[in-house]
């Protein structure tokens, strides 16, 4: 399994997406991360492990504390994924082209400065 597959799998779960969003505000302890969820701390720890294995977050060792944070390079696999987002956008813009082609010609681009409004 590639790093990207791991990122996909990690982010396919809504709880893990929520954890990512939480860590976007800054590093946090397991207790902090678990507090808004109605699931047990061990379950949260399992989610954190999946996110860490996927390379999306890391653990900082600070005395006995183990705060988690987003990895700075976590963006890259996600950005790679965005090439798929780009494909979705392209499909949407292709539809926009079709909408434009079908618009009545009342404001046809006779001038590129904008619509002509003739008063009679």
């Amino acid at each position: 399994m590639t790093r990207l597959d791991l990122s996909f799998a990690a982010l396919a779960d809504p709880t893990r997406r929520a954890i990512i969003l939480k860590l976007a505000q800054g590093e946090a302890t397991v207790q902090d991360i678990a507090s808004p969820f109605s699931i047990s701390q061990p379950a949260i720890s399992r989610h954190l492990r999946v996110l860490e294995d996927a390379g999306l977050i890391e653990t900082r060792i600070q005395g006995t504390a183990r705060p988690r944070r987003l990895k700075p390079d976590a963006v890259q696999p996600l950005w790679d994924w965005l090439s798929q987002y780009r494909a979705v956008l392209e499909e949407q813009f292709d539809k926009l082209d079709a909408v434009l082609d079908a618009l009545p010609d009342t404001d046809a681009p006779t001038q590129s400065t904008g619509p002509e409004r003739s008063e009679s």
């Binding site: 597959d5 996909f8 396919a12 997406r17 929520a18 969003l21 976007a24 800054g26 996600l78 987002y85």
Partner: peptide, 29 residues
């Protein structure tokens, strides 16, 4: 912030693509 951008890429933008996620969730890892 760059983290919020990363999170948006990870959550907001991709959350709108449930079709992709449904496929992902169907995958066996």
């Amino acid at each position: 912030t760059t983290q919020i951008r990363a999170a948006a890429i990870a959550t907001g933008m991709t959350d709108g693509m449930d079709e992709v996620y449904r496929k992902l969730e169907a995958l066996e890892f």
